[in-house]
Amino acid sequence: MNKRQNLFKGIIKENPVLVLILGTCPTLAVSTSVMSALGMGAAATLVLLCSNIVISALRNVIPDKVRIPCYIVLIAGFVTMVQMLVKAFAPALDEALGIYLPLIVVNCIILGRAEMFANKNKVLDSAIDAVGMGAGFTLALLLMATIREVLGNGTWLGIEIPILIDNKISIMTMAPGGFLVFGILIAIVNKISGGKNSKKSFGCAGCPSAEICQKAACGEKEEAK
């Protein structure tokens, strides 16, 4: 895989949100407005870039058995830095993202990329992967936020849209709208990809606890065997 493919795979083919189905919680939560979606995307991308570079650089140093705790500490450190930066330079964004800013720590995309990519690849490749995945995350958030803000609030990035502004479907910016828009988007992605990538079950492949999760979910089947 060359560097170009590596960069662009995160945006469409392996889009973390719509294809790999990672980072569902922040996607649903902050896509109520375009502004907070962009802020969340930028913050998560920055954390992902830093963590991918450092984890990739340290991949031969960190013992395999304790890698997950090491990654979590590194990621939490970067999240704290981003949190302080946002608090200092963009207090309005801090207000909008609220609890979801510190919760980037448990965003599966970041731990997932560390586990799936950064601990096996060189520093430069990992950095490119992080930029691609971050861009994919941001674009998916932007898409969802655009749909929700335009339909639910009649605005886009605060710009009023004629006609729609008088006919708000406010449910779109509330919780049910988030689930609905996300469900429909994934269905569209399934349709376009011809069901090749469609997830029959909930995709936790990128989640470091996937193994245990599947054991828990399929425990009964295994016992039956």
């Binding site: 689930f179 609905l180 469900g183 429909i184 399934n190 469609s198």
Partner: peptide, 22 residues
């Protein structure tokens, strides 16, 4: 419908469940 099988229909169902909590 085929495209909705699996996760999408689950999310739509979650949307309706969440609606009831509103």
């Amino acid at each position: 419908p085929k495209a909705f099988q699996g996760l999408p229909i689950t999310l739509v169902a979650a949307s309706i469940t969440s609606l009831s909590f509103l």
